[in-house]
Design a protein around this nucleic acid. Structure first.
Length: 579
RNA sequence: CGGGGCGUGGCGCAGACCGGUAGCGCGCCUGCUUUGGGAGCAGGAUGCCGGGGGUUCAAAUCCCUUCGCCCCGACCA
């Protein structure tokens, strides 16, 4: 592509509304422009990268046996009502009505539509397994879109859905996709890690997220320093070290103490001069409309995903102030397990079995209790792993220390089981002529987010350093001809040679000063730069620069084709990528 | 949804407290010079100062209202 006829509106300064480096650089390199909050125009350069990511993803999907389709973005409400998600999905689902007053939404994901498509046509076990995917624009009305392409409201996603005749098949489909994802992300050139994840609003049996390791990531990963264990913070299991069960152990009688105006853990600890690990923190939640209480030690935090899964609910939220007052007869800050409204089931974290004689809220204004014994002074429905893992906890698999890292979720695979097929009656006849629900899985990749993630992982003070696999152009050939037409003519020849090798090349033939060309090439982040100037012409060489490392080499004009091919191969291999 | 900040040429900003009819840098256009790391000189174009309403002789500036964008938070008892 000749840059003299291309459209790359670069910016010298960071845009005022960009915070993270990928957002700034995507804007500055002329790859995207914001239309409105969380919604972006993809410019020629940005679209090229997105298309390259999508092409790799498609190849790996096809190789894994998935078939590409394209489903609508506009979806009718009745499908969502069938699965119940019209009510459960919440405000992220953008809803609207057509002229006949019928309800619709913009698709944030496509389980319903895909299941509907398949249930209409697939009737026999002979047609299974089936895996259909698409690369498509999704819309999620995020509470707070931010960070450019990292968390947009409208974004490009690859989503695949597998349908199997039984559990074993579904599991095979799941791991098949898992492997395809690893291949795709490797080929894209990302440093990533698959981690165990909670399945959230999509639901299902188990799932993994593929995390790109980057400081700006919004997710936290707990990973073992010794074994392979890695999990999203909200999923990571906490194993309480072995020790005696202190439930019901000897403990003085419970007594109430006045704690006027003291409601937070810190305040209670200061007031009673105790450490926070002597206190039971009681949080009231509402799970699918029903109140539940969760107990953790004062220095711990409740993991609401774990609580929701334990209770078996879909939606979880902290109780609002009015409900807290009703259940505890006190303002927020004095809830405790003893004397709580009888209809509220109490779930306690495993760790609370390792000690007794607790301090807790008294369910009365300005009062707490001391010498609380769980089981003696209140009923506990169940002990379970309820808290958020902390850096001081041990690996739940092997007991070695764990470490926390930040990650960007670029892919997510779910084993759904019967969640959608049962509700939507996606059934087939098995070998015995019996009607069975299909066993499903679903698999997403954030295509546009990957472009942002790649920049987060690969940039420097001068701009982007794209991996060659997804750079908008793999090579930029810069001609410093100026008035010397012979240089431009020679550069033109080289451009033809490079193109002739099937390389995606940009040819900077613009009448710009050298400084401008260099600065923009660095900003855009072409992995390879070739520079031909008057001096090079004289001595018969082209300068070749590796954008990522800054390393410069000289390629001979005589025998350029071979020299370039070898150098290019070298660059790819430095990225750990095969040509 | 709560709190904070910001909307002034394409981009980044000043001007606002203290009302007097808009300015700087970059970019853009023309010409000359320059040509190995975002050039220099000269000339030039581009603003319903986010929208609406009000106060005033006079509003980018003060008041009310509305829309948009960004950041933080969204209750850990």
């Amino acid at each position: 592509m000749r840059l003299s006829r291309y459209y790359i509106p670069t910016l010298k300064e960071d845009p005022a509304d960009a915070e993270v480096v990928s957002h700034k650089l995507l804007m500055r390199a002329g790859m995207i422009r914001k239309l409105t909050s969380g919604i972006y125009n993809y410019l020629p350069l940005g679209l090229r990268s997105i298309n390259k990511v999508a092409a790799i993803v498609r190849e790996e999907m096809d190789r894994a046996g998935a078939l590409e389709v394209l489903l609508p973005t506009v979806q009718p409400a009745d499908l969502w009502q069938e699965t119940g998600r019209w009510d459960y999905y919440g405000k992220e689902l953008l809803r609207f009505k057509d002229r006949h007053d019928r309800d619709y939404c913009l698709g944030p994901t496509h389980e319903e539509v895909m299941t509907d498509l398949v249930r209409g046509e697939v009737k026999s076990y002979k047609q299974l397994p089936l895996n259909l995917y698409q690369v498509q624009t999704k819309f999620r009305d995020e509470i707070r879109p931010r960070f450019g392409l990292m968390r947009g409201r409208e974004f490009i996603m690859k989503d695949a859905y597998s349908f199997d005749k039984d559990e074993a098949g579904a599991e095979q489909s799941y791991w098949n996709m898992f492997e395809a994802y690893k291949k795709a992300f490797s080929r894209i050139g990302l440093r990533f890690k698959p981690v165990q994840a909670d399945s959230g609003a999509i639901g299902g049996d188990f799932s993994h997220e593929f995390m790109v390791l980057a400081e700006t990531g919004e997710d936290t990963i707990a990973s073992c320093t010794a074994c392979e264990y890695a999990a999203n913070l909200e999923k990571a299991r906490v194993v309480v070290p072995d020790g005696p069960d202190m439930t019901g152990a000897e403990c003085p009688a419970m007594e109430q103490v006045a704690t006027p105006g003291v409601h937070t853990v810190d305040e209670v600890c200061a007031f009673l001069a105790i450490a926070p690990d002597k206190l039971v923190k009681t949080l009231l939640f509402v799970v699918d409309g029903k109140p539940v209480a969760a107990l953790v030690r004062g220095d711990r935090e409740v993991n609401d995903a774990k609580l929701r899964n334990l209770v078996g609910g879909n939606e979880i939220a902290l109780a609002d102030e009015a409900l807290v007052r009703r259940l505890t007869n006190a303002p927020v800050g004095f809830a405790g397990p003893a004397g709580l409204d009888k209809d509220v089931p109490v779930y306690a974290d495993n760790e609370l079995r390792t000690a007794t004689d607790w301090v807790a809220g008294a369910n009365a204004a300005d009062a707490h209790v001391r010498h609380l014994s769980l089981g003696r002074d209140c009923a506990v429905e169940r002990y379970a792993d309820l808290r958020v893992i902390e850096p001081t906890d041990a690996c739940p698999e092997c007991g070695a220390p764990i470490e926390f890292t930040k990650g960007i979720e670029v892919g997510h695979v779910f084993k759904l089981g019967l969640k959608y097929s049962a509700k939507m009656e996606a059934t087939f006849l098995d070998e015995n002529g019996k009607t069975q629900p299909m066993v499903m899985g679903c698999y997403g990749i954030g295509v546009s987010r990957i472009v942002a993630s790649a920049i987060e992982q690969n940039n420097d003070g001068n701009g982007c350093c794209f991996p060659p696999s997804i750079a908008p152009f793999e090579v930029c050939l810069i001609s410093l001809g100026g008035k010397d037409e012979a240089v431009d003519a020679k550069a033109e020849e080289l451009y033809e040679v490079v193109k002739g090798q099937g390389v995606d090349a940009a040819f900077d033939d613009r009448k710009e000063r050298p400084g401008v060309k260099f600065a923009e090439a660095d900003l855009i982040g072409y992995p390879m730069q070739l520079v031909l100037g008057g001096k090079g012409m004289q001595s018969g060489i082209v300068e070749a620069k590796d954008r990522k490392t800054g390393e410069k080499t000289e390629l001979p004009l005589d025998g350029f084709a071979e020299a370039f091919a070898a150098w290019r191969k070298d660059i790819w291999s430095k990225w750990g990528l095969a040509l």
